[in-house]
Measured scan of single mutants.
Amino acid sequence: MDVFMKGLSKAKEGVVAAAEKTKQGVAEAAGKTKEGVLYVGSKTKEGVVHGVATVAEKTKEQVTNVGGAVVTGVTAVAQKTVEGAGSIAAATGFVKKDQLGKNEEGAPQEGILEDMPVDPDNEAYEMPSEEGYQDYEPEA
């Protein structure tokens, strides 16, 4: 019985440690998101679009440190934060509304985080759909 109880105690310690790591990862992701939003706020009209992409990228980098179902929630929060940063930029006159959601080359930025393969159960990952990809044929 002692062996059984000791095993359960060790398992509990492992769960607590994993929860603490997840909590730490979420806190880091939130900190990076805040950094990115402050970065966007300090940019001029020309830099705002690039700044919004930076927020998304920093958040995406930190999301990889967070495991399990938390990833889905962090990704949703990050996307809403990026959308909010863009709205703030438009409201303050840093950028025109028609410039939001495009990178410096004018290509749409939507789907940055949505296409990231995420499995809350950590069982399997699927690649994003290939609808947006084109076949590449090298020139002879």
Results as ranks from 00 to 15, higher is better:
136 Y>I: 10
118 V>A: 11
136 Y>W: 13
4 F>Y: 15
12 K>H: 08
129 S>D: 09
55 V>P: 00
113 L>C: 03
15 V>D: 00
89 A>L: 15
127 M>P: 04
121 D>R: 03
109 Q>L: 05
134 Q>T: 03
40 V>I: 10
76 A>H: 05
136 Y>Q: 08
138 P>D: 06
22 T>I: 15
121 D>W: 05
40 V>G: 01
123 E>M: 06
95 V>D: 07
24 Q>T: 12
35 E>C: 14
42 S>I: 12
11 A>N: 00
52 V>K: 01
78 A>C: 10
123 E>H: 10
62 Q>R: 10
6 K>G: 01
10 K>C: 02
71 V>N: 02
39 Y>R: 10
95 V>R: 11
124 A>C: 13
71 V>T: 05
84 G>Y: 13
131 E>A: 11
32 K>F: 09
97 K>D: 15
26 V>T: 01
46 E>N: 11
17 A>N: 08
86 G>D: 04
133 Y>T: 09
84 G>H: 05
134 Q>R: 14
5 M>P: 00
48 V>I: 12
31 G>F: 14
5 M>Q: 00
95 V>S: 09
68 G>V: 12
73 G>W: 12
68 G>S: 03
140 A>Q: 07
24 Q>P: 00
83 E>I: 14
41 G>F: 10
51 G>K: 07
77 V>T: 03
138 P>N: 04
38 L>Q: 07
117 P>Y: 05
79 Q>Y: 11
28 E>P: 01
54 T>M: 15
137 E>Y: 09
78 A>N: 01
77 V>A: 07
132 G>Q: 11
19 A>Q: 01
53 A>P: 01
33 T>H: 01
25 G>I: 10
108 P>S: 07
34 K>N: 01
119 D>Y: 02
66 V>I: 15
123 E>F: 13
45 K>E: 00
98 D>C: 14
39 Y>E: 02
29 A>N: 01
4 F>E: 00
65 N>K: 08
117 P>R: 03
38 L>R: 09
70 V>D: 01
138 P>E: 04
2 D>F: 15
33 T>W: 15
131 E>V: 11
48 V>N: 00
30 A>D: 00
64 T>D: 04
124 A>H: 07
100 L>E: 07
133 Y>G: 09
77 V>D: 02
81 T>P: 02
74 V>M: 15
42 S>H: 06
61 E>T: 03
95 V>W: 12
96 K>S: 08
85 A>Q: 02
9 S>C: 09
46 E>H: 05
128 P>S: 05
94 F>K: 05
75 T>Q: 14
114 E>I: 11
85 A>R: 03
10 K>E: 01
76 A>T: 13
30 A>K: 02
27 A>Q: 15
34 K>V: 15
58 K>A: 13
62 Q>V: 03
22 T>E: 00
129 S>N: 04
40 V>N: 00
49 V>S: 07
100 L>M: 05
28 E>H: 04
16 V>Q: 05
104 E>M: 15
68 G>P: 04
62 Q>G: 04
56 A>D: 00
132 G>M: 13
131 E>T: 10
138 P>I: 04
8 L>H: 00
26 V>G: 00
73 G>N: 07
74 V>T: 02
132 G>R: 14
136 Y>F: 15
132 G>H: 05
34 K>I: 05
127 M>Q: 10
68 G>I: 15
8 L>P: 00
5 M>Y: 01
2 D>C: 04
137 E>P: 05
16 V>G: 03
3 V>W: 02
121 D>S: 10
10 K>P: 00
19 A>M: 05
53 A>D: 03
135 D>S: 04
27 A>K: 08
82 V>F: 13
67 G>L: 11
58 K>W: 11
108 P>F: 08
79 Q>I: 11
17 A>V: 09
12 K>Q: 05
47 G>N: 10
73 G>D: 02
4 F>L: 08
40 V>D: 00
122 N>G: 02
128 P>G: 06
40 V>F: 07
100 L>P: 08
8 L>E: 00
12 K>S: 04
30 A>S: 05
80 K>A: 14
31 G>T: 09
47 G>D: 08
99 Q>S: 13
83 E>S: 04
133 Y>K: 03
91 A>L: 12
79 Q>N: 10
98 D>K: 07
138 P>S: 08
78 A>Q: 03
61 E>Y: 02
39 Y>H: 06
32 K>P: 00
136 Y>N: 03
38 L>V: 08
75 T>C: 11
7 G>T: 09
45 K>S: 06
17 A>E: 07
76 A>I: 13
25 G>A: 15
112 I>L: 07
114 E>C: 14
89 A>V: 14
32 K>T: 02
75 T>K: 13
129 S>M: 12
15 V>F: 02
38 L>F: 08
103 N>E: 07
14 G>S: 09
128 P>F: 09
68 G>F: 01
29 A>S: 03
122 N>K: 14
89 A>E: 03
64 T>F: 14
80 K>M: 12
54 T>W: 11
110 E>W: 04
35 E>K: 08
24 Q>C: 02
107 A>N: 09
125 Y>S: 06
65 N>C: 12
3 V>Q: 03
1 M>D: 00
47 G>K: 09
27 A>Y: 10
97 K>P: 10
86 G>K: 10
47 G>C: 08
84 G>E: 07
17 A>K: 11
44 T>S: 10
75 T>D: 03
127 M>L: 12
133 Y>C: 09
80 K>W: 14
80 K>F: 15
28 E>S: 10
54 T>C: 13
20 E>A: 14
120 P>F: 07
63 V>F: 07
65 N>D: 04
122 N>M: 10
133 Y>Q: 09
64 T>I: 14
31 G>A: 08
20 E>F: 13
32 K>H: 09
86 G>F: 15
37 V>D: 00
121 D>F: 13
126 E>H: 12
82 V>D: 02
11 A>W: 15
110 E>A: 14
49 V>C: 14
69 A>Q: 09
70 V>W: 15
115 D>S: 05
87 S>P: 04
60 K>G: 03
13 E>M: 14
38 L>D: 01
131 E>S: 08
21 K>S: 09
37 V>I: 05
24 Q>R: 13
136 Y>G: 08
34 K>Y: 04
21 K>L: 11
1 M>G: 00
43 K>G: 01
3 V>G: 01
139 E>I: 11
107 A>M: 08
7 G>N: 12
52 V>N: 01
6 K>A: 07
93 G>R: 05
58 K>M: 13
2 D>N: 15
109 Q>Y: 10
82 V>P: 02
6 K>C: 03
69 A>P: 03
35 E>Q: 05
45 K>C: 09
139 E>S: 11
49 V>A: 11
91 A>S: 05
73 G>Q: 13
123 E>P: 08
20 E>P: 00
118 V>T: 03
131 E>F: 14
122 N>V: 08
134 Q>Y: 07
61 E>P: 02
99 Q>A: 10
127 M>V: 10
88 I>A: 03
126 E>M: 13
139 E>F: 14
73 G>H: 12
31 G>M: 15
29 A>R: 02
43 K>L: 11
21 K>A: 12
54 T>R: 15
107 A>F: 04
19 A>D: 00
9 S>P: 00
76 A>C: 11
27 A>D: 01
15 V>H: 01
123 E>T: 09
44 T>A: 07
110 E>C: 06
49 V>T: 09
30 A>R: 02
23 K>S: 04
52 V>R: 01
79 Q>W: 04
80 K>I: 09
99 Q>E: 07
54 T>L: 15
67 G>Q: 09
40 V>K: 01
11 A>G: 02
72 T>D: 09
127 M>N: 09
115 D>H: 10
139 E>P: 05
130 E>C: 10
88 I>N: 02
9 S>R: 14
67 G>K: 05
41 G>S: 12
56 A>Y: 14
17 A>I: 05
123 E>W: 09
9 S>N: 15
125 Y>L: 08
55 V>A: 06
98 D>Q: 08
110 E>F: 12
106 G>L: 05
84 G>K: 11
17 A>G: 05
66 V>E: 01
86 G>E: 13
134 Q>V: 03
37 V>F: 10
29 A>I: 14
59 T>L: 06
